[in-house]
């Protein structure tokens, strides 16, 4: 029917890029990360989502190649 890993991979890749870029853009904002205990949680989660998204896309592409 459809390999669900494509939409999952694509969505998390897009979200990962978006959140990572936003994290870098707001890096120098002094008040931005006060409530997350000074940790730039956007960069961390953005990279995590990006890696997860790409991993799902690679799995889906590998399966298609096999078939």
């Amino acid at each position: 029917m459809v390999d669900i890993r494509y939409p999952i991979g694509l969505m998390f890749t897009i979200l990962g890029v978006l959140v990572t870029v936003f994290g870098f853009l707001t890096m120098s904002d002094p008040g931005m990360y006060q409530k997350s205990l000074g940790i730039n949680v956007n960069i961390i989660m953005g990279i995590l989502m990006l890696v997860f998204g790409l991993f799902m896309l690679i799995l889906a592409l590998r399966k298609r190649k096999k078939e």
């Binding site: 959140v19 936003f22 707001t26 409530k35």
Partner: peptide, 11 residues
């Protein structure tokens, strides 16, 4: 509300 800044808050 307590811990997440804009970005991950949306998530």
């Amino acid at each position: 509300k307590q811990y997440l800044p804009a970005g991950v808050l949306g998530l």
